[in-house]
Design a binder for these strands. Structure first.
Lengths: 238, 238
DNA sequence: ACTCGAAGACGAGACGTATCGGGTTGGTAG
DNA sequence: CTACCAACCCGATACGTCTCGTCTTCGAGT
């Protein structure tokens, strides 16, 4: 992995991409590629090839060389712009999510005034997306990679996850202001109560993801599962 | 990362069920290692070395060769008994979880009669475990590997996860029978409502895992977040 | 004897880097 | 306006390294 620099350069030893931090620490400026000259065609070809190959061979067997070959680009063109296989997939997924795709470019969650119905609708759509082969492979790969690579995970969360969560929070805030949620409701917690179990079941495959599941989940989150003797918080619904 | 059996047919890899099936399909009889003669010392050494190295270099850079070297065994001794790096870690984690470890061998969740308090106690302990470096690396690695490799994920779920979930279900069943939960409560769903958000936040690092978080989570799950003008008992709206 | 274990040789394949020719761009001199 | 040139990205490929998973050899335990 760490190749020794041949030191053929008198004053400027070649810097590996990963050694950007080291080079910076050494006072050297890392030679950044000129994004203005970047080939959009190559970029798209790489992203498309990555997604296609991911679906064909799976994340583990996906190689940079295969992506380059499929995309008809040189390896260096990938290494120049992305630090890792996972980073390529992150951009590919961003392209997927960003594309206008039927139900794609969501500007916000539906708001009919009926919070439960709106949430069920959206979660049903999310389930369908999770069950869609087209999205499953990249989503699993990125989630798994992000779980073990904190830096990648941070970017994944920031660029893909948080925007989604924000939409939920917005809708929940509206509901809270309308008195449909307790005034002191923790919006972030509530969002995670909705998406957590969904993601849990999807990722760990403890049970199939169905609409019935998400419907029951919404009911459970909004209404709680406590029975007769309301234990602590007296927030019950009828 | 090697998750799929190499399609090379010459010398079939020994014992695992899938390899046996593949060999059977190819008309070959698999020479299964004699488990009776297996060296327990080597097995433990391999498991210990795997865990140690995982903590040192991380899952991605963990190699079979390094494990063998650290354990003082030959590579073949690993390949003979495990099909993949992840499988070794799964066994290592099972050894960890199975070991009597202070608070370890849980026979069941505490039952003081106060469901909320019991759950908070257990989830706090779970949070502490998630935040423990000793468990974090293997847990993340296995979860991530299981997410992309269905077969490994199935074994991971079956042997590590489900036993845990069963404990929660038992405790919730007791509560349901005591009338502390609605009679028609979906126990599995409830368990996932508790562990889903916890796992979600841990895996995706959307926010730090704290005791306050799990306390609020328990309250939210039991009481629900719906506010407003509701009367009557906590019953899920249909 | 028979098999497991330790050690390592081995070829395959992927990694990440370096470099070359080709093509495009942008600046400058005539 | 044209001609030239330097800089740069890009496709392609050679290169050395690393890890993989198998195979082979040799000893040791039963």
């Amino acid at each position: 992995m760490s190749t020794e620099p041949p030191a053929s350069r008198p004053a400027a030893p070649p810097q590996p991409a990963k050694a950007a931090a080291a080079a910076a620490a050494a006072g050297k400026t890392v030679k950044a590629p000129d994004a203005g000259r970047r080939s959009e065609r190559s970029r798209r070809a790489i992203l498309d090839a990555a997604l296609a190959l991911l679906g064909e061979v799976g994340y583990n067997k996906l190689t940079i060389e295969a992506i380059a070959a499929r995309a008809g680009v040189g390896k260096q063109t990938i290494y120049r712009w992305w630090p890792s296989k996972a980073a390529v997939l992150l951009d590919a997924s961003l392209a997927l999510a960003g594309e206008p795709d039927a139900e794609g470019g969501w500007a916000g969650l539906p708001d009919t005034g009926d919070l439960a119905a709106d949430l069920k609708l959206v979660l049903r759509a999310t389930v369908d997306e999770f069950n869609d082969e087209r999205y499953e492979a990249p989503a699993r790969a990125l989630t798994a990679a992000g779980a073990t690579d904190p830096e990648l995970g941070a970017r994944f969360t920031e660029r893909l996850l948080e925007p989604q969560l924000a939409l939920y929070e917005d809708r929940l805030r509206t509901a809270r202001e309308a008195g449909q949620l307790a005034p002191d409701t923790d919006l972030r917690l509530t969002v995670e109560m909705l998406l957590g179990p969904l993601t849990y079941r999807w990722l760990l495959r403890t049970a199939p993801l169905t609409h019935a599941f998400t419907d029951a989940l919404v009911d459970g989150v909004l209404g709680g599962v406590a029975g007769g003797t309301t234990t602590g918080v007296g927030k019950v619904t009828a």
